[in-house]
């Protein structure tokens, strides 16, 4: 088997590998998000719960971009951009509220 055959084989196989990854990585992300829900439920205080929710939010941003690629519709990237902004503002607002008792 010479080099050009290897290149042709890789050229045909790699897009399928990427399609497979687009199905496996979201499964891992959803699974770890469910593991984070344990920390949301158990606590101990509000601080731990915000950390877990912030982590779930970051996973959701990545998931939205991946879903956009899976369905082939580029509008999900805009949704992910706005969701990243909302996630950040939400964390800051809750932390400020817990620190001072008002926003």
């Amino acid at each position: 088997m010479d080099l050009s055959e290897v290149i042709t084989l890789l050229f045909q196989a790699l897009p399928e590998v990427i399609t497979l990854l687009f199905q496996i990585i979201p499964l891992f992300l959803v699974f770890t998000a469910f593991l984070c829900l344990y920390r949301v439920v158990i606590g101990p205080r509000a601080g731990n719960r915000i950390i877990a929710i912030n982590v779930i939010g970051t996973k959701t941003v990545v998931l939205l971009v991946l879903v956009g690629f899976i369905y082939g519709s580029p509008y999900f990237v805009d949704v992910a951009l706005v969701y990243a902004l909302v996630n950040f503002i939400m964390t800051l607002a809750v932390a400020k509220y817990l620190e001072t008792g008002g926003i």
Partner: peptide, 9 residues
Amino acid sequence: VAAHAICRE
């Protein structure tokens, strides 16, 4: 920044 806000609180 988000980590720092929670940490400080």
